[in-house]
Design a binder for these strands. Structure first.
Lengths: 110, 110
DNA sequence: TTTAGTACCTTGCGATACAAGGTATCAAAA
DNA sequence: TTTTGATACCTTGTATCGCAAGGTACTAAA
């Protein structure tokens, strides 16, 4: 019960910054969806496919991301996502919003 | 458009820590709902009544909060919420989860 | 007895994360 | 040549939840 509760809380917190994390990862290197999922899992921002795909599509439709297809030597072609200029702008706004939130909680928790 | 986008992102981030904020405020002092809303607004964790009331009820049902009625000299009685022992435990777990998230984003954004 | 202020609570809607299931490509084994 | 396994993409159905809007109730002053 309590355990469940806490897991719920954690995932709620993570959800709030999921989009921020996606843009952050893509800011370093272009990546395809499966790759992104693995990186986010490594960072303990657990994500399942069903969550990520609609999100990527949404961000693409908002003009934050673009993609290109690339052949793979080991399976089907990969859809590589990359940050657009607008995506980089929004990422900077997210940096600000995140900083503010961290400060706010610092004060609240003092 | 973009502005809207950013507001959306901010509120999404805030939402993720809303429950954490509520418990944090109540950890300092007991408070009634209207008072809580004002404190959270001051902290720029914007909350409207329709969001807060169901949340307080949920946290009460989970055993994190308890309440008592107190008469007011200026209007209807007030429902003062207070942290339970379980609430304090969960708050500590939230502290941990929050720290981890801050660290994760620190690494992701490096 | 009506108005203003304070406080509590509920309903309906839309957004969205997640679980589960589905499609397609490629290469190697049977 | 067909099947299997690995990789990769995507969609659908369900449940949760935040928010806007609307509603109730108590008190005091006009």
């Amino acid at each position: 019960m309590t355990e469940n509760n806490i897991e719920n809380i954690k995932s709620q917190m993570r959800r709030g910054v999921l989009e921020y994390c996606i843009l952050s990862v893509l800011d370093k290197n272009d990546a395809y969806a499966s790759e992104l999922i693995n990186k986010l899992k490594d960072a303990h921002i657990i994500v399942v496919e069903g969550t990520l795909y609609p999100l990527l599509t949404r961000q693409k439709n908002q003009g934050l991301l673009a993609y290109r297809w690339e052949e793979s030597t080991q399976g089907p072609p990969r859809k590589y996502y990359t940050l657009t200029d607008k995506g980089r702008e929004v990422l900077q706004e997210m940096d600000k919003a995140w900083k503010e939130l961290v400060e706010t909680l610092d004060i609240l928790r003092k």
